[in-house]
Design a protein around this nucleic acid. Structure first.
Length: 569
RNA sequence: CAGGGUGUGGCGCAGCCUGGUAGCGCGCGUGCCUUGGGCGCACGAGGUCGUGAGUUCGAAUCUCACCACCCUGACCA
């Protein structure tokens, strides 16, 4: 491809809307253009990247025995009513009406449609079947951000597997786990597979695949001493080994004017944050308030809290009026002393003595509070996020926390959809059975952003080889002036292309600074420069995108040596 | 959804407080010049100042409403 015949739209200055590096660079390199909030055009250069990612995904899915199909983006409401998700899915589901005022949605996912396909087509026990597509999804997220990282319209690879029994589901689940590892490895990404919460989807097993990046929105707890890795939402926070000390202090009510947060509290009372207890009120299963206690520096984990019988799901913080009625105080001064309702303490809190906690009166706290002495023994449960330094749940060391960007997620759905949508087959005995199901997603567009987040420098993007828009750029310096430069560059372009190298030939006769800056910005991994200076010695130059300096390459045999460098990595 | 912010040529911004017919840099076009890191000079094209209403002799500027986009939060006690 010649730059003069391509649509390159690089920007010197980044549009003001972009905050994170990948978003800024994608806009500056002209990979994407925003049409409206969370909706992007993939420009020719960006589309080349996207297609390369898709190709790797497709090859590995095919290799693992999955079969590609393509399902509609627009789906009738009836299917979603059948699964119950027309109501359950909520406002993220983009609903539309046709001219007859019939309800449709733009698919955020395809369990319903694929289930409908399979129940019509598959009646026999000759399973498993694993169907996938690479397709546009729409999710009307509350707040899209970071460009294509969290867009409303995006490309997803989604696969759905169908099984006669759980053992078969387990086998395909393992195969998909391996397949995903191959995909992210081939794409040149540093990633980690972690155990994940199955969330609202239910089922037993679930793993997320995270591209590691400090700017990632998710936190991963992992153990360097073992292979344990889990989303912090799931990672178990064990009870401290030391038993609860005996009370040493007296319960004292202290005036804490204006103190609303834990940060205010320990600053005002000058106590260590580890001696404070945060009391949060959520709605109980019966609608009455439930008091949840975690140590001041810990965070309540709503996913864990929601699994408790006492708590209503989905977990909701109690309304300020309800809190006032139950405690006689505003949030910020709550505590267990004197409270008649249900109290749940985190395991860490259960091992604390002489702590500081709200006194159920505005601007007042207790110091020297003790379980058992000052209020009844609460229910003890794991209700907080794991933090760095916690013992690993597998007993083999201490947890550390990493940031990641979720690019893949695999689930065992079991029979959640197959029973709702009557997905049955006849077994060998001619008896009707419900299928087991799995589903497996990859955020294809998000991978591009995540790869850039992980691979860039101050000059621009550094694409991993497998997803670079071109393999090599060929820059000719002063080709308008020097016939020798022009002829050599043209000849090299032809020969490299003929040798199977995907070359972008910068034939614009721009000044060298312009060409270099553009080519570095768009992240092509290899560069060859033809200039009068080198040609005097019968040489051109080669430089890798991460190299500090160029190295000369003899013009004789240049195609061969350049090709080996391009393919050699 | 709540709170905050911003809308002025393709991009980045100034002008608004204190009303008087719109400006800078980049980019774009043409010519000259230049050719190893976003070069220089000259000329030029391009803007209903987000939309609507109001105040005023006069509105980018003041008032009101609406729209769009961005940021922060929704794991806060």
């Amino acid at each position: 491809m010649r730059v003069s015949q391509f649509l390159l739209s690089t920007l010197k200055e980044a549009p003001a809307e972009a905050e994170v590096a990948s978003h800024r660079l994608m806009l500056r390199a002209g990979l994407i253009k925003r049409l409206t909030s969370g909706v992007y055009t993939w420009m020719p250069l960006g589309l080349r990247v996207l297609r390369k990612v898709e190709a790797v995904v497709r090859e590995e899915m095919n290799r693992s025995g999955a079969i590609e199909l393509s399902m509609p983006a627009v789906q009738p409401a009836e299917l979603w009513q059948e699964s119950g998700r027309w109501v359950e899915y909520g406002p993220e589901l983009l609903r539309i009406k046709d001219r007859h005022q019939r309800d449709f949605c733009f698919g955020p996912t395809h369990e319903e449609v694929v289930s409908d396909v399979v129940r019509r087509e598959v009646k026999s026990y000759r399973l498993p079947l694993n169907l996938y597509q690479i397709q546009t999804k729409f999710r009307d997220a509350i707040r899209p951000r970071f460009g294509v990282m969290r867009a409303r319209e995006f490309t997803m690879k989604d696969a759905y597997s169908f099984h006669a029994d759980k053992a078969s589901l387990d086998a395909t689940y393992r195969e998909m786990h391996d397949c995903y590892s191959r995909i992210f490895t081939r794409l040149g990404l540093k990633f980690r597979a972690v155990a994940a919460d199955t969330g609202a989807i239910g089922g037993t097993a679930s793993h997320e695949f995270h591209v590691l990046a400090d700017s990632g929105e998710d936190a991963i707890a992992y153990c360097p001493a073992s292979d344990y890795a889990a989303n912090v939402e799931l990672a178990e926070a064990l009870a401290p080994k030391a038993p609860r000390p005996a009370p040493a202090e007296k319960l004292q009510r202290v005036h804490t004017p204006g103190v609303k947060t834990i940060a205010d509290l320990y600053a005002y009372l000058k106590v260590p944050i580890e001696k404070t207890v945060k009391a949060v009120c959520v709605d109980g299963f019966d609608g009455r308030p439930v008091l949840m206690m975690v140590r001041g520096d810990h965070q309540l984990n709503l996913a864990k809290a929601g699994k408790l019988a006492q708590v209503k799901t989905p977990v909701a913080f109690s309304a300020p009026e309800a809190i006032r009625e139950a405690f006689g105080a505003d949030p910020g001064s709550l505590g267990p002393v004197g409270f008649k309702g249900a109290v749940i303490a985190d395991r860490t809190v259960a091992a604390m003595a002489d702590f500081v906690v709200g006194a159920n009166a505005d601007d007042h706290h207790y110091t020297g509070a003790n379980i058992g002495r000052d209020f009844p023994e609460p229910v003890v449960a794991d209700i907080r996020n794991a933090v760095a330094g916690d013992p690993s749940p597998d007993g083999k060391g201490v947890l550390e926390i990493l940031r990641g960007i979720e690019v893949g997620h695999i689930f065992q759905l079991r029979t959640k959809y197959s029973s709702a949508m009557n997905l049955a087959f006849l077994d060998e005995a001619g008896k009707s059975q419900v299928m087991e199901m799995g589903c497996y997603g990859i955020g294809v567009t998000r991978i591009v952003a995540a790869a850039i987040e992980q691979n860039h420098d101050e000059r621009g993007i550094i694409f991993p080889r497998a997803m670079a828009p071109f393999e090599l750029v060929l820059v000719a310096i002063g080709m308008g002036k020097s016939a020798q430069v022009r002829e050599t560059a043209e000849r090299l372009y032809g020969e490299l292309t003929a040798a199977g190298v995907d070359v972008l030939f910068d034939d614009r006769d721009e000044r060298p600074g312009v060409a270099f800056a553009d080519m570095e910005l768009i992240g092509v991994p290899h560069r060859v420069v033809v200039g009068e200076r080198g040609l005097k010695n019968g040489q051109v130059e080669y430089q890798g995108r991460r190299d500090a300096k160029a190295e000369p390459v003899g013009l004789q045999g240049a195609v061969k040596s350049v090709k080996s460098m391009v393919c050699g990595q």
